[in-house]
């Protein structure tokens, strides 16, 4: 059962590695707003769609 002497450190290495990434991400403010991303996901628009909408409107500059 000595394999555990190798498996265990690596499992911990990976698990605590992700904990490190978690702490780095908290610092980078990834968890400040957990509501808007779910909506923002729905609205990726291509340039054509924006342009199509852009020139469709008659009274703005772009």
């Amino acid at each position: 059962m000595n394999i555990v002497f190798i498996l265990l450190p690596f499992a911990l290495l990976l698990g605590l590695g992700f904990l490190g990434i978690f702490i780095w991400m908290v610092g980078a403010g990834q968890f400040d707003d957990l509501e808007t991303p779910a909506y923002r996901l729905l609205f990726e628009e291509t340039s054509e769609e924006t342009k199509k909408k852009g020139n469709a409107s008659d009274d703005n500059g772009t």
Binding site: L14, F18, E35, P37, L41, L42
Partner: peptide, 26 residues
């Protein structure tokens, strides 16, 4: 969400779901 054109039910839960899984999954 893209196919249903509706946001995921609870985005907060999906984050909790991920991080709780990945700390001990291995």
């Amino acid at each position: 969400p893209k196919a249903a054109e509706k946001p995921i039910y609870s985005y907060r839960f999906s984050i909790v779901h991920f991080w709780s899984l990945v700390f001990i999954y291995i």
